Simulated scan of single mutants.
Amino acid sequence: MNRTQKGEIIEKLRSKASTASIAIVTDFKGLKVEEVTPLRVKLRESGVDFHVVKNTLARIALNGTPHDVLNDSLKDCCAIAFASGDPVSAAKIVVEFEKGAKNFSTRFASLEGTLLSSAQVDALAKLPAKEVLLAKALGTMNAVPTNFVGLFANILRNFLYALNGIKEQKEQSQTV
């Protein structure tokens, strides 16, 4: 690989890293290309880029990006998954694939510049998707005014029952 090819790889990785919300570093030592292909397909469907790259090139590319916290930890064979969208979905795909693969593991990750251990990536993968969290938050915010309206409707209904009761008492006292 000549210098221009290395420069192109570095620029490509730098552009991916600068827009990515999460960068997950994985170990794939001992896996064949055919065994990693299903992971690549799932990641690509979710809009996640998965790159096998030399550590020196990755260090240069990540320098000056939010994910430069990974530089000190890049060792041995590794691949990096960059997700610019929902970080939870990327973590779910990688952790799910890790459960079924023998020689594949998640080493660590960078979530918007914060270094995460493998256990923290597993915990991130257990979170509900962004859409589910937004739906729950919206449901909670919608419940407050709905309950408020229901409360006032009950107060008004009870007030009307009381007025109706007073009216009936007065009608009975006038007829007697």
Rank of each mutant, 00 (worst) to 15 (best):
N2W: 04
N2T: 10
N2V: 10
R3A: 07
Q5I: 06
G7E: 13
E8T: 11
K12R: 09
K12D: 08
K16N: 09
A17R: 07
S18F: 05
S18C: 00
A20W: 04
S21W: 11
A23T: 04
I24F: 12
G30L: 03
G30V: 08
K32G: 15
V33G: 07
E34C: 01
V36I: 15
L39C: 14
R40Y: 01
R40T: 09
K42C: 00
H51K: 09
H51L: 10
V52N: 04
V53G: 08
V53N: 02
N55H: 06
L57C: 07
L57A: 09
R59A: 11
L62A: 01
N63Y: 11
N63S: 12
T65K: 04
P66V: 00
D68M: 06
D68G: 05
L74G: 06
A79I: 00
I80D: 07
A81M: 10
F82E: 08
F82I: 04
A83E: 11
A83L: 07
G85P: 08
G85Q: 03
P87R: 07
S89T: 15
A90Q: 11
A91N: 10
A91C: 09
I93V: 13
V95I: 15
E96S: 08
E98Y: 10
E98C: 11
K99T: 03
A101H: 02
K102V: 08
N103E: 15
N103W: 14
S105I: 03
T106K: 01
R107S: 08
F108S: 01
A109F: 11
S110H: 04
S110P: 08
S110D: 05
G113E: 09
T114N: 14
L116P: 07
A123N: 06
A125D: 09
A125R: 07
K126H: 09
L127R: 10
K130Q: 14
E131K: 13
E131D: 13
L133Y: 07
L133R: 02
L133S: 08
L134E: 12
L134S: 14
A135G: 14
A135T: 13
K136F: 13
K136D: 13
K136I: 10
L138P: 06
L138N: 06
G139A: 05
G139N: 10
M141V: 12
T146Q: 03
T146Y: 02
G150D: 01
L151G: 05
F152L: 00
N154D: 00
N158K: 02
F159M: 01
L160N: 04
L163M: 06
N164I: 03
G165F: 01
I166R: 03
E168A: 06
Q169N: 11
E171L: 05
E171R: 01
Q172H: 10
Q174I: 02
T175R: 11
T175P: 03
V176G: 12
